[in-house]
Nucleic acid binder design. Structure first.
Lengths: 118, 118
DNA sequence: GGGCATGGTATCATTCCTGACACTATCGGC
DNA sequence: GCCGATAGTGTCAGGAATGATACCATGCCC
């Protein structure tokens, strides 16, 4: 449903860069992954607390897409009130250096960007 | 004009991740940067050859945004036919490890993604 | 004097992303 | 029997991101 996936990877030598980016290019996905790297396991409501300006619908969406891509797993506990836990899959774990690189760069250079609007 | 920039970086601990992503989250920006890391200096037409399925308008757009963010520089040579060269700024150079991380991950794992559509 | 190359712009359409808001189920506690 | 908590879903709408297409200026070459 989101952007067209380049599964063939034949477009160009740098195509895998594109492909990787499409995995967590969603507006909140990188943040979701980041929090999972920090905390390990998170419930839906814990995400909401960490990311207050994300609507419930968006959060669900992004989580589902990450799940569909095999980066995170979703475990439902049949309790009342319901409990759902999200954590990284093995594949998701491999993204750690990538997210880490993003974070490191951001911490270092984000302040040196020309302000735009806000 | 694009996504709202988080210049304040006060939203959350992982906000810089977001901020970084917004720099090259454009559909073709990462690819542009990648090619610049590979080739050093590129003319407009050389980008077009390397990325045939990007329209001229999009390419111009993305290049201008990267320039506005201070990641690449644009040099016009007053010749005929005109010549314009793009290269990474010092700030742009610092993104190398990030793009590299994306590429490395993609090369390793992109094939193991569930195919979607295409 | 027509065609080509370069590096674009302008305009319009469409598709996709994102957000607001309302609504649902269940069970326990008061 | 009403409220709250949790983890959502459904529908609608607005705006942003992207694409298609056509157009422009210049000077050289033939």
């Amino acid at each position: 449903m989101p952007r067209i996936r380049h599964t063939t990877l034949t477009c160009s030598p740098g195509c895998t860069v594109e492909a990787t980016l499409e995995l967590f290019g969603g507006k909140w996905k990188a943040l979701i992954l980041y929090h999972l790297f920090e905390d390990g396991v998170l419930r839906f409501s814990e995400f909401r607390r960490r990311m207050p300006n994300v609507t419930q619908r968006m959060l669900t969406n992004q989580l589902r897409e990450l799940e569909a891509d095999g980066l995170i797993s979703r475990t439902v506990f049949p309790e009342v009130p319901p409990r759902v836990e999200y954590e990284l899959t093995d594949l998701g774990q491999t993204l750690k250096p990538v997210i880490h690189a993003l974070k490191t760069w951001g911490d270092k250079y984000a302040h040196s960007l020309k302000p735009e609007k806000e």
